[in-house]
């Protein structure tokens, strides 16, 4: 009896959390006629892949914007990784009052919502345009740059670099390794699961860009898919759901791929707590 209740409860939790995703997927196989009658239906009347055909053949701008999304995400991911690994390495090795205050400032910046951190970015771009004549607005670089210097990665990695036993560091030092060699051959291999987790986090965050592009970009051809999908819903609902599924696919795929790495990391944190 108890087993049955547990099964029922599990099924309930799974359905509640998965439902919006299932709904989107099932709607991507409906035809335009069924989508237009405004009732909430879940099962497609006729299973068809018309939506996917249309989005890939007839509205091919979708894929151009898909590539925009990929470029911006890759730019932020690569840049933020390099910048944060360096900064987190500094914070984990250097212990002084200044570095602690600095880290506190970093933490505070991490907590700020984008509506605040975008203000100084806009002001900076405005003055660059005014004094240097360099127009950054409406370029994808303007979106990538603030993402590279987001302090989330520094905060996240510092905790992990610090969890490395101090003796590893000292042994490498005695063997004559330089700071850079220690970083590359000791610290990074030790924290590869944390780095994978951070990659996932940055990927999720930036694949789903909304705030930055609507402030920095003005022409539709430079926008990421996330913004395009918004306009698609009202104008071409027949293909909106197929676009949604294609858009969420990479994130879910990557999540499933590095699931095991995350599990290992969670266990590691638990071990250290003991």
């Amino acid at each position: 009896m108890k087993k049955f209740t547990v099964k029922l409860l599990s099924a309930f939790i799974i359905i509640v959390f998965i439902f919006p995703i299932l709904y989107t997927i099932s709607h991507s196989f409906m035809d335009g006629y069924q989508l237009k009658n405004n009732e909430v239906e879940i099962v497609p009347e006729i299973f068809n892949i018309q939506q996917y055909y249309e989005i890939s053949v007839e509205k091919n701008e979708y894929f151009k914007l898909y590539i925009n999304s990929a470029i911006m995400t890759a730019g932020v991911l690569l840049g933020q990784m390099i910048v944060s690994i360096g900064a987190a390495y500094y914070f984990s090795v250097k212990k002084s009052r200044y570095s602690e205050v600095l880290f506190l400032i970093y933490t505070f910046f991490m907590l700020l919502p984008l509506q605040i951190t975008l203000i100084p970015n806009v002001l900076l771009y405005n003055s660059i345009e005014r004094y240097l004549g360099l127009r950054l607005f409406n370029t994808q670089f303007a979106v990538i740059l603030p993402g590279v210097f987001s302090t989330l990665g520094v905060f996240f990695l510092k905790q992990f670099f610090e969890s490395m036993p101090q003796s590893y560091y000292e042994i490498a030092k005695i063997d004559g390794a330089s700071d850079l060699e220690i970083l590359l051959h000791v610290v990074l291999p030790y924290s590869k699961n944390a780095i994978a987790a951070l990659c996932l986090l940055i990927f999720i965050e930036n694949w789903n860009l909304i705030e930055q592009p609507i402030i920095f970009l003005s022409s539709m051809s430079k926008m990421p898919v996330s913004i395009y999908l918004n306009t698609l819903y009202s104008s071409y609902r027949e293909i909106f759901y197929a676009g949604s599924v294609l858009f969420m696919f990479p994130v879910i795929y990557v999540f499933m791929k590095i699931r095991d790495k995350l599990k290992v990391m969670v266990l590691k944190i638990s071990d250290e707590g003991r």
Binding site: S10, I13, I14, F17, I18, F19, P20, I21, Y23, T24, H27, L200, I204, W207, N208, I210, V225, S226, I227, L229, N230, Y233, F240, Y241, S244, V245, F247, M248, V251, I252, F255, R259
Partner: peptide, 22 residues
């Protein structure tokens, strides 16, 4: 599967499930 289901929504982009919520 329960764990995966609860965690999955944090990975899903806002715009891709906006149809359902709309």
């Amino acid at each position: 599967w329960v764990q995966a289901a609860v965690i999955l929504p944090i990975t899903v982009p806002a715009s891709s499930v906006s149809g359902f919520f709309r």
